[in-house]
Design a protein around this nucleic acid. Sequence first.
DNA 1: ATAGGGTTAG
Length: 508
Amino acid sequence: MALYREMIIKGIYPDTYTIPYVLKACAGFRAVEEGQQIHAHAIKFGLVCNVYVLNTLMRMYAVCGIIHYVQKLFDESPERDVVSWTTRIQAFVKMGFAKEAIGAYFDMCREKLRPDKRTLVVVLSACSRLGDLSLGTQIHENICDVCDIYSDVFLGNALIDMYMKCGDADSARQLFHEMPVKNVVSWNSMISGLVQQGQYKEALDVYNDMQRIRLKPDSVTLVAVLNACGNLGKLELGKWVHAYIDKNGIKADGFIGNALVDMYAKCGSIEQAFGVFQGMKFRDVFSYTAMIVGYAMNGEAQRALDIFAEMPVVGIKPDEVTFVGVLSACSHAGMVEEGRKHFEDMSRVYNLEPQTEHYGCMVDLLGRAGLISEAEEFIENMPIEPDAFVWGALLGACSIHGKVELGESIMKKIVTVEPVRDGAYILMSNIYSSANRWKDALKLRKAMKERKVKKTPGCSLIEVNGVVHEFRKGDKSHPKVEELKKLLEEMAVHLRNYGDCSTSNFIS
DNA sequence: ATAGGGTTAG
C-alpha cells in the first residue's frame, strides 16, 4: 500500500496489473476507504473495463460487506466471466441471501456459462444455509457432470457440509470415507456437523479417529468438541481440551473462549465458566449470553441479571438468545415484575421481536407464580401463533397449582399442534394423579400407547473421575443403584428437616 | 514477464 502511494505521488500510473494487487491487500485488511480510493483511481485511469480489475473490485466490496456495490459493478461491467459470477454468488452467501445466490447460479447456467469447481463450492455453501437437501443433491449431480468429486478436497468438504446441514448424516459419512484425500477441514465438517445434529457421542468418536491418525485439531475442531462435552456432561474431556489450548498456545479468541464458558456452565462448573469469562480479552454477545444462560441454568438468577446489567455498560447489545436466559432466570427465581420489565424492554429498548420461546418463558413465569388467568390472557394477546412450548408452560403451571379442568382444555390444544411428544401427556397424567383421578390418568396412558407417542426418558448425566454416569428415570442398571437410593433417601430426610417439601418424589 | 473467485465454528 505504501509503495503504491509512493508510485502515485511520483506520478507513475497504475495499470491493470497493479490495481488487483493493491485491492487484494485492501480486501485482506477490510480497508473499505482505501479500496474506494483505488476504485476512484481505476476510474480515473480508465481501467474499469478490464475483467481482472472489475472482479477484484467486486471481491473487495464483497468481503467488506457492501453488496450494493458488488451488484452495481456486476450490472455495469461490459464483460462477465465465471469469476465475476462466482464472486457475486459468494457475496450473496456471505450476506445471508442464500436464495439470491442460488438464483444467480441458475441465471449463470442460463447464460451458457459453465460453473467450475470453485463456483460449485460456493453454491453448495448456499444449499447448506438453506438446508435444502433436494437442491443440494441436484448440485451434487451437476458436479458429477463437470468433474470428479474426489479430485478436489474443497469440493468434498463442501459436499460433506451440505449433507450434514441438510440433515443427511449418512451421505456425509459415506462421502467422508470415500474421499481419498482429507484435510483438517474435512474432519471439522464431520465433527461439527454431527454436533449440530445432536449426535454428540458420534462426534467424539470421529474426533478420536482423528487423534488416532495424529492429525492436529485446530480451533474449529476444539470448539465443536467443547460443544459436545457440554451437552454430554464430559467435564474431564472438556478440561483436557482447555489444558490443550493453553499448552499449544492456541489463541483463546472469541470462539474458543465462548465455547469454554459454555462447556463449563453446561457441566455445572459455573465458577470455572466465570473464570474463563473474566480472563477473556474481548467479550461479545455470545460470551455474555453463555454466562447468563449458564447462571440461569445453575439456579443463580441474581448473578445472571447482574451480568446482563453489565452489557449496556460495555456497549454490547443483547440478542434473542440472551433474553431467553434473562427470562428463564426470572422465571426460576419467581421474579415476576423484573421478568415483565425485561420482556417489555426486548421490543421497546432493543428492537427485538419476542419469539415463542420468550412467550413460553413469560407464561412459565406467570404460571409458576400462580397468576394463571393472567398467563392465559397473555397467550390470548400473543401476536404469533402459540406453539407446544407455550401451551406446555401453561400446562406446567396447571400441574403445580392443581388446575384439572384448565389442564384438560390445554391438553386438547397441545395434541393438535404436537401429538407425538410425551411431555404434555406426562404432565397431564400427573395432574390427574394429584387430583386422585386415577381412571383419567390411566385413560391418558392408554391414549399415549394408541397414538404411539415417543417417550424421551428423563435422564441426567454426571461425571465422576472421568466416567460419565447416565441416570434415566426408572433405570436401575447402575451398578451402585441401591447405595445411591439410600443416600438420596437420607438427603431427602435432611432436606425435609430444613423445610423443603419438594423432594418427596425425586427418587425414581 | 507480472492479475481475479473456494470449504469448517460460538
